[in-house]
Design a protein around this nucleic acid. Structure first.
Lengths: 246, 246
DNA sequence: AAGTGGTCTAGACCACTCT
DNA sequence: GAGTGGTCTAGACCACTTG
């Protein structure tokens, strides 16, 4: 018979055992009990620890692996994932001849500002809250191709306030992870079209009013909180984006 | 009549039993043994039929469900899916004020032509093979918004050659399923921008050279074969597309 | 009440990785 | 060889759907 396990702190009502267990493990990962890149205890260990059968524990880990929180490697162990790398996000993004290669990056400006209503709405913070605003130029083969405007909530990103931007490298997400402990789990891209302003045109060596594409990205961490708002602009006619629908 | 499937599970080298079983079931579904919308035999029945444990059979069905080939409904059964509806593909597509609503459609032309090198490449057929070419106008609130050029391989789509286009309705994919037995399992959209030609401008009540967006779609059936090539064009300023990256 | 898929168990054995 | 995750089994019981 199925005696309800008294030691089960995971016995949330209306949830299957493996789902509740997955939630509990998820919390332990997010709370930093096992830092990114490290291995979780072995299956058998976790199963006895939580008083469930091995199959049930495995079901929980499969759930978390599906969500991208952990990664399982046969013969090695179960590891906490670092989040999206930033290079994966260029996967479906093409500009000019670049076949998904990572563009070189230069930070043009860095300021602390108060969030506008629109920025606050998309970041899920209050109007007037402080945010870090970056302007960034991305080039391919020495040619400027994309200008970016990036908003990051403070104080979460305080670690970027004084780091010398010249040494930031071409990808921001590894920097987020390293200096601020922020992992990007998921993102949405919104693609739209608008003529370039005079300033945007200058940065891209195009005329004001030239047809431009705008990709508005919101990036989220594993707890679902929006951690980045970014608007990327470039020459519409050089732009290409591929999406798979299932 | 119902020949048992004896060593199928053991016969595929280098594959797990459930993976081999999934492949076998997949073939039976694609071959039409269980038509779209009908239920498969119960789990216990399929398991004994193939000589595997229930858990193994379930693993196979879970695989096929992930791939979108079948759909499991608790208490009811396991059903063969119809494929994408066409409405799901408008999910992330916005035009003007339409919040994902399905535009009205009118077929402007229907011809049988030979495939150009580019069309043949994308459809995965030989140059010079016959294809059905459609031109289609899609409107929102009576306003023409999108012009589409669609290529469908023949003789697969012969069922569309003489059907009166006035009665086709606003979605093509249900028509594909009904008249040609074609189910769309997956699609890719490629987004780019280009000025409208004079002819495209006329259809959309815009001037020649007006900034236009072009969405090139390839649709695939469950066996991975490309069954449709479509280029949709519209006013770049009214265009909006949302993508989620994980 | 009967039939379906969903959950959970307990244990055996296989395949991969590292030392 | 020791430790990890992956596969497979056999059976019990639960939850949902329909007649």
């Amino acid at each position: 018979m199925n005696v309800p396990h008294p030691a089960l702190a995971e016995s949330e009502p209306g949830l299957s055992r493996y789902a509740a267990l997955a939630g509990a493990l998820r919390r332990r990962v997010i709370d930093g009990e096992w830092p990114a890149g490290t291995a979780l205890p072995a299956e058998t260990r976790l199963a006895t620890e939580h008083g469930v059968a091995l199959g049930t524990l495995r079901r929980s880990l499969e759930l978390l692996a599906e969500q991208g929180l952990i990664e399982r490697r046969h013969g090695k162990g179960t590891f906490v994932r670092m989040g999206l790398s930033g290079a994966t996000m260029m996967r479906f993004f093409r500009f000019g001849s670049g076949d998904g290669e990572v563009p070189q990056s230069r930070i043009l400006s860095r300021q602390t500002v108060v969030a506008s209503p629109e920025v606050a709405r998309r970041l899920g913070i209050a109007r007037g809250d402080p945010v870090l605003r970056l302007q960034r130029l991305r080039s391919l083969g020495g040619q400027p191709r994309l200008v970016e405007e990036i908003w990051l909530p403070l104080p979460l990103f305080a670690g970027l306030l004084d780091a010398p931007t010249a040494q930031w490298g071409d990808l921001l997400y590894p920097l987020f992870a390293e200096r601020c402990g922020v992992a990007v789990a998921r993102a949405t891209d919104e693609i739209g079209f608008a003529p370039l302003t005079a300033a945007q045109g200058r940065s891209l060596e195009l005329s004001a009013g030239h047809p431009g594409v705008a990709v508005t990205r919101q990036a989220f961490d594993f707890s679902g909180r929006c951690v980045e708002l970014r608007i990327t602009r470039g020459d519409a006619f050089a732009f290409h984006y591929t999406v798979t629908i299932t």
